[in-house]
Design a binder for these strands. Structure first.
Lengths: 165, 165
DNA sequence: TATTGTTATACTCTATAACTATA
DNA sequence: TATAGTTATAGAGTATAACAATA
């Protein structure tokens, strides 16, 4: 079928309500995607992470590494499994990540006194120093995001997302 | 340093306002992550996509493939670059994805009449049939998501995310 | 010169499975 | 038997660079 499909090449851009000056490229019709929350959540998440990665580039830290460092700082002595559960990271992935953070001299793994199987995680002094500066960069990023979204939208989004856990 | 770090193994779970019955595992203190919108956007996005992937599993379709099929259906004859731009997908990644969709017999690439470099994209009959059913599964998923978030929160989130473009 | 589609590479993430050592 | 940590693998997503054909 469709041996001779109509070449319905409509160069007419289907733009939505957003018709700013010099809209660079034609936006296509999103169809049913307009009704899918996940599409918009994904786009926002990608934009935020791209900017966060750029913001943390001076320390070559990825968002996931940042979140692990923060949890270790706030919950010293916890085993890997607890960190992994709290952040929804696979144990295997976390182990690899911790090797890298240990190689950089930012974290320590000490044998747990309670449980011979587990490691108690701590930041080193260098890790604390690095994280202090990384957190400052992350806060700058967050303030830029707040400006980008507008203070009201930022606040409402945060409230909606936080009380759904 | 920290030759003898205090074994501050506090098994006391730091739980927030969410103290449901049988809170399975101790939630750790998220620290500064509580103030980062990206953290919560990411968690929601991961949950939505995991459920969507499960919902679309009968057709072995990934979210990105789904969005490409929808855009081709709604914008027949468009070249690959237009799809890639609209969905924020790399041209190279889209080319690979289209090969797979073509292999399944869901899409066609015809030489563009306007531009010798580009391919005009169309769904095949089989592609239209598949997409009709895939969209139904996606809609079921969306209704589950709406129930999961609550109708009010779902509606407010959608409104906030859609008008930020 | 710039753009379209393509191939190739690399790196991250994610998901599994299998293994050890402990519980 | 279950759990903690490790290693290995495979798949998907993302980001680049390079190339041929065309504009």
């Amino acid at each position: 079928m469709a041996a001779k499909p109509r070449p319905s090449q409509r160069a007419v851009p289907v733009i939505g309500e957003d018709s700013r000056a010099g809209a660079e490229a034609a936006r296509l019709d999103l169809g049913i995607l307009e009704g899918h929350l996940g599409y918009f959540v994904r786009r926002l998440q990608v934009e935020i992470f791209q900017q966060l990665i750029t913001a943390l580039a001076p320390f070559n830290v990825r968002p996931a590494q940042f979140s692990v460092l923060v949890l270790i700082e706030r919950n010293p002595g916890q085993p890997q499994a607890a960190i992994a559960r709290s952040l929804n990271i696979e144990r295997a992935a976390l182990a690899k990540m911790l090797h890298e953070l240990e190689r950089r001299g930012w974290i320590q793994r000490l044998p747990s006194v309670d449980d011979g199987r587990s490691h108690a995680l701590f930041l080193t002094g260098a890790g604390e120093d690095a994280l202090t500066r990384i957190k400052a960069l992350a806060q700058d990023h967050e303030r830029r995001l707040e400006r980008r979204l507008g203070a009201r939208r930022y606040r409402e989004l945060a409230a909606l997302l936080k009380d759904f856990g």
